[in-house]
Design a protein around this nucleic acid. Structure first.
Lengths: 240, 240
DNA sequence: AAATTAATGTGTCGTAAGTACATATTTATT
DNA sequence: AATAAATATGTACTTACGACACATTAATTT
């Protein structure tokens, strides 16, 4: 080994240390991937592979790569885990507590996304993935329960003001399905007449002149979200 | 140099590289520090010291230290720059575009804070600091104009629902002052009678039975925010 | 085929909040 | 004493919200 090479290695050691001072913070993106099925709001979780959290589930996340921005990273995770690339995605909050990750300092930026479980086929190659009803979740790995709750609160806010909820439904749906979804998200029962009045005022829906045909009772009319409210482009990002 | 030491240096080189792969992203906090003076909403800015942005101003920010969480970092910046430690602070959004910082990959987490300019003495040792009326700002260094606008939008939302605006005012204020502040933030003119009705319904204010005494016209009554709505503790963080 | 069941679909009334708008009162100033 | 400029306050109209009941339709059962 030449002196030059030695010097290079020493420099590396020094640089590594000074680097560690300010750059040894990992940055991840965590995705709260929400779906709606069986009249329940569900979140996609994976069994934690960390010793410290054995038996617990965690959200889907990954380190941000040096050459991808935040939205690209969260979109990549979604694509890798669900195979979907036409999803609603919204940044919610950054979490940076000192001890939130057992193996070092990791700051995470949390996103939530809304997908239609039924209308897409999954790459369920990762068979540690599971859909969990959000109401039954008591504990998650890391601070992921806090992240989940924060995202759910954001969703509840959004739902009252913006037509985001339709990302959880198939293209055509009945007003009953829509109401049940609102009830699942908000955790309250709604009066059918008042609900319909409220939706009518928003003027979000298109009467497509079709009826339900797979229900064991009187079929309801089907509606679709008006085009102008549909997320635009392949990557449906909510910009603020 | 022993073989062991050599090996250690080699390991350092490797670790530095793999470290660089995922940990060479800098993380900063940027603070949109807002104050209200002369019937205008103002933001505290500093002249950028970067070649690329010469002549432009930027928000106040700093790298996050390895041993401080996000709130601690933003609070530290506020304290360093304003000397204040009883401020309203709220996280707004993380910005992670690839080319937002000329000297490398830097992700920033933006906070806004509201302070009463007049009632506190400043450590204006940093005399590159200036208060700028937000309405007159056209361009800032980095992506700070986008960050500013994002924070202002968040503030406008909050203002309609929560009593955050009072952090910009002295303890005692008249309804006229309060209305002017709302008008400055929202950028609209409000009807005095309807405004007072709306504020009365909120039931935020305490009639302290004092009058203005420094105005060149008929003095108005003074009010204070009820205790229950005042930010609690030295570090007045808005938790969500 | 008739009766039953279970869901869809719709309207009204009372209450609360939002909006537009005008006049009397008080204080400082002239 | 008169004037100017701001404070303080109420009403009528419209719109949204919440509680509430009954007729209709289609599938299922008898």
């Amino acid at each position: 080994m030449t002196d030059k090479a030695l010097q290079q290695l020493k420099t590396a050691e020094i640089e590594k240390i000074s680097h560690l001072d300010y750059f040894n913070i990992g940055i991840t993106v965590d995705c709260v991937i929400l779906g709606y099925d069986d009249k329940e709001l569900k979140v996609l979780l994976i069994k934690s592979d960390m010793q410290e959290f054995s038996g617990l589930y965690s959200l889907l996340g990954d380190f941000i790569k040096p050459d991808e921005d935040l939205e690209t990273a969260s979109y990549r995770i979604l694509k890798e885990r669900t195979g979907l690339d036409d999803v609603y995605l919204e940044q919610v909050h950054a979490f940076g507590g000192l001890n939130r990750h057992p193996s070092g300092r990791v700051i995470t930026i949390a996103y939530y996304s809304l997908i239609d479980i039924k209308n897409h086929k999954f790459q369920l190659s990762h068979n540690e993935l599971h859909w969990h009803p959000v109401n039954e979740i008591r504990k998650l790995a890391f601070d992921h329960k806090l992240i989940l709750d924060t995202c759910l609160n954001r969703l509840r806010q959004q739902v009252m003001e913006h037509p985001v909820i339709f990302n959880l439904l198939p293209e055509k749906f009945s007003l009953r399905e829509l109401q049940e979804l609102y009830e699942a998200i908000l955790g309250v029962e709604l009066d059918r007449r008042n609900f319909r009045k409220k939706i009518a005022i928003k003027d979000w829906l298109l009467d497509i002149d079709e009826m339900e045909n797979d229900v064991p009772h009187r079929p309801g009319k089907l509606y679709a979200l008006k085009k102008q409210y549909r997320p635009k482009g392949a990557r449906a990002l909510a910009l603020h």
